[in-house]
Simulated assay, not measured.
Amino acid sequence: MTLPQLDGPRLAPAAGGTPRQLVVFLHGYGADGNDLIGLGREWARALPHAAFVSPNAPEPCGMAPMGRQWFDLSLGDMSIIAEGVARAAPPLDAFLGAELTRHNLPPEALASWGQQGTMMALAVGLARNPSPAAIVGYSGALATVETLPPPGSGPAILLVHGDMDEVIPVDAMYMAREMLGQAGLPVEWHVSQGIGHGIDGQGLQLGGAFLKQAFGNAASPVP
């Protein structure tokens, strides 16, 4: 079966020249790549040598005809969601590989960032070998633990969630943190007070700083 070909808006590094890192934004349910690509400008100071890309999800959204979806979120059934994540994972994984090749970058120069895309970022990023440098997830959840890297070999992970999230309760973040921790994967996390299903300025700042640190650690030689 032919995989869907993903594409979306891109931003070149603010510093110009050849990218040293690649940050992939995975948009939320009913949105598209244009919804997040502007965050690349927000993080330009922290990540001046990073290229940014925000692919459009492969399916039209049934609840928002002008938007896209990685999978159907409307039923709220985690078994159906896990099937949807598994279906959307191969085209996203192929896209990540193609983008790294486009920029002639190694796997450890990659980071992914998501909302509904958090589930995609975790499912695909944790299965990639070698692992990406980092995964940052906002207002998301861990859909599956079928493929996790060995302890100590996975990406840096940051989970951020609003305590007033009415779409995906903050308990989903706590569950993801616990399950990843049990698998030996270190997870940093932050609860944004008074925030619903969205991202505040502090959360964005934390994400940019986290990626800067993760890319720096990935580029450091192993003693």
Rank of each mutant, 00 (worst) to 15 (best):
Y29Q: 11
Y29V: 11
R128S: 04
S139T: 10
G17F: 01
E178N: 10
L180G: 05
V170T: 13
R128K: 04
N104D: 14
E188S: 15
L211K: 06
V187H: 06
G208N: 08
D200K: 10
A172H: 13
E59I: 01
I81E: 13
G203A: 11
G181R: 03
G117P: 00
A94C: 07
N56I: 00
L148W: 08
P169E: 12
A46N: 00
L158R: 00
I168Y: 07
P186V: 08
D32I: 00
D32C: 03
V145G: 07
A88L: 06
F210I: 09
G76T: 11
G137L: 04
M175C: 05
P90W: 11
G152E: 00
P106A: 14
D93F: 00
H161V: 07
P60W: 02
E188C: 09
L142A: 08
S153N: 09
V53Q: 00
R128M: 07
G154V: 03
G125Q: 04
R41Q: 14
A219E: 12
H103E: 13
D200R: 10
Q69A: 05
P130N: 01
A46V: 02
L73H: 08
E42R: 14
P107R: 10
R87P: 04
T2S: 14
A86H: 09
G196T: 09
P155C: 03
A141I: 05
I135K: 02
A127S: 06
N217E: 15
D7N: 14
V222N: 11
A214W: 07
A143N: 11
P19F: 01
L26V: 03
L142Q: 07
N56C: 03
W70Y: 04
G208D: 03
D200I: 09
R68Q: 10
P169M: 06
R45W: 09
D165E: 10
G194R: 06
D165A: 06
G38Q: 09
L142Y: 07
T118N: 03
